Amino acid sequence: MPLIKAHDGYLTVFNMFETDSEEHQQRLLEEMQKIIDTGNFTGWVSSTLHGGQDKLGTANYIQWRSLHDLENRYAGQKYKNETVPLFKEISTSVNLLKTEVVFSQHHPDLDKIEISPERDDWTVIIIMDVEPENQQELVDLLGRPDDWLVTVPGYRSHSICRGTDGTFIILYAQWANKEAYDAFHHMPESERPADVQEIRAAVDRLVTARRANTYRVVHSRAAKN
């Protein structure tokens, strides 16, 4: 199954869809799974499909060996003439976000960060927009070891992915369940360590917009070595 590791050399793509009904979300998942199961693209490493929980939508976490391989995939006529029109019909927005994993941390009980439908992770994906001149500062703030977070009940892992165009970062996190994540997310600032409060305040000053959803992994496939 796919693994997340900082500086793994892959182009990590988040293919994010929003939709307006449970029927359309299920259709998106079915059509994407077909593509994942039949795809044999040069340079493709893995695809892991997520179904939205708090909001309707899907997320596909895709690893590619290079930008060139990705561009070749989306230049294909079948993709342009069949796949794109279909997804436009059943989704309300589509975002293809190209990133590189620049930081990852996991709980000591885990020996790696695995993303798989065989796991029961409550997955959180947060997209944070930032001005290009501030992106590295945001990465430096969030991409550092957090010893306190490891002590929070239900925490499993988190990774920071830097947008290759300089305008955003993505936080990809795994929690044991919804209740554990909600307790952490809604924790009063006064109950967090002072240094964590300072980092969060600095992040808030840099981030210009946030988009977030929670997910369950529903399907995954990796290329054969």
Rank of each mutant, 00 (worst) to 15 (best):
Q105F: 11
K98E: 14
K98C: 10
Y79V: 12
E18W: 00
R211M: 11
L3R: 06
L49V: 03
K112C: 10
L28H: 02
A212H: 11
E133D: 11
F17L: 14
A59T: 08
G57P: 02
R73E: 08
E100Q: 09
Q135F: 05
V94M: 13
S93L: 02
E23Y: 12
T208K: 13
I170A: 11
T48S: 14
Q197C: 12
I126S: 15
R221S: 04
R216D: 07
G163E: 06
R119C: 03
T208I: 12
D182M: 08
S157A: 13
T48W: 05
L28M: 10
N40M: 06
N60H: 08
T83P: 03
L56A: 05
F41M: 11
R210T: 15
Q33Y: 09
E30F: 09
E114A: 10
A222V: 06
H50M: 13
Y181P: 00
K98T: 07
Y155Q: 04
V196D: 11
V150F: 04
W148F: 15
N40I: 00
E18I: 01
M128V: 00
F41E: 15
A6C: 01
I199T: 13
D109C: 05
E18T: 12
A59P: 00
E23H: 11
V94S: 13
E118S: 09
L206Y: 05
L206I: 09
Q63G: 08
K88S: 11
S116C: 04
R73M: 15
H158T: 05
S220H: 03
Q105R: 02
Y181S: 01
N15G: 04
L171Y: 00
S46D: 15
G76V: 02
L96E: 14
R216E: 09
S190Q: 14
G39I: 04
S220L: 00
I126Y: 09
N213L: 02
L142H: 02
T58S: 14
W175H: 03
A212I: 12
E31H: 12
H106E: 01
T19H: 02
D37L: 08
G52E: 04
Y155E: 03
A194S: 09
A212Y: 13
I62T: 13
V196L: 06
V217T: 14
D147M: 07
R119A: 06
